[in-house]
């Protein structure tokens, strides 16, 4: 990332750009995807991001929330954020309708190491809302499908109606991503897997572990056990990547809130190589 200097709206890291809600898609309960347009057309033109990066969504008077981008990085016309109602900002966002404006700063943070996965197999392991930050990676893998070996998505949710973007699975499957879902709590109608997502990793064939990459996003405990399973399958620790979550306040490494040991999650993360943080993952309250 090049040094950004102060002065213009595009370069002052504190300054948000105005965005407008172009559409809202209700996903699962309590979760919606906001399709955003930039109020300033030139801002839209210069905005590009890498899968895994996030934006700070800023609701004036309420505050900011770090939300990962969940749209296709190649489609410049759309900028999607899948948001779960959790804190004040997202609660307030949930009250906003199409046409409402608010602020956006970004994109920030590191991205999924797609280029480091070239020619090998890719396993994406995720749970719940964690699929949102991985969706741009799925799009990118699909866009460049021939450059990779097997691409497998292992996705767990609490229950069948907690599975995000389910309408897209067939399309992904048809285009070369092996989609495997599982739920912790089955409903009577559920015909799929029951159990945690790490179980899927435990039993899936891993043909060439040395050249297999795991991209994982979910609750920290889930990522820890996913990494354990992956290591158990012979996948090198350098090929396991996780996406961390911490309290991001400034998003530019200047406020200290999101530290995780040596890592500023906002600028060194959110996507980090597992072995670089693993020693701290199970330290309580660190």
């Amino acid at each position: 990332m090049s040094t950004v200097t102060a002065g213009t709206p595009a370069t002052d890291p504190w300054l948000a750009q105005t965005v407008r809600i172009a559409g809202i898609t209700d996903e699962i309960e309590g979760v919606a995807t906001y399709h955003l347009d930039f109020a300033d057309a030139s801002a839209a033109g210069s905005f590009s991001f890498r899968p895994g990066q996030f934006n700070m969504l800023y609701l004036p008077g309420v505050g900011e929330a770090a939300i990962s981008i969940s749209s296709d990085p190649l489609l410049h016309g759309t900028l999607d954020h899948t948001v779960r109602i959790a804190g004040q900002v997202t609660t307030e966002l949930a009250r906003a309708g199409v046409g409402a404006t608010f602020g956006l700063r970004g994109p920030f943070g590191s991205s999924w190491p797609i280029d480091e996965c070239l020619e090998g197999d890719v396993i994406l392991v995720t749970g719940g809302i964690g699929l949102a930050p991985l969706r741009p990676a799925i799009y990118e893998l699909l866009n460049r499908r021939t450059e990779f070996g097997n691409v497998t998505l292992l996705y767990g949710a609490r229950h069948p109606f907690g599975l995000l973007y389910s309408a897209e699975y067939d399309d992904w499957q048809a285009n070369g991503v092996d989609v495997n879902t599982t739920v912790d709590r089955a409903s009577p109608a559920w015909q799929g897997n029951v159990g945690v997502v790490t179980q899927l990793l435990d039993r899936m064939p891993v043909a060439d572990p040395e050249r297999t990459s795991v991209l994982c996003c979910g609750p920290e405990v889930m990522m820890w056990y996913t990494a354990r399973s992956a290591l158990g399958r012979g996948i090198p620790k350098e090929r396991i990547w996780i996406s961390l979550e911490r309290n991001m306040n400034c998003a530019i490494g200047l406020c200290g809130h999101c530290q995780f040991g040596p890592t500023f999650v906002c600028k060194d993360g959110p996507v980090v190589r597992y072995d670089r943080v693993s020693q701290y993952l199970r330290v309580e309250g660190f």
Binding site: V4, T5, P13, G253, L254
Partner: peptide
């Protein structure tokens, strides 16, 4: 404040 990718103005 000034040594990283983002400079605090």
């Amino acid at each position: 404040f000034t040594g990283g990718p983002y400079v605090d103005p």
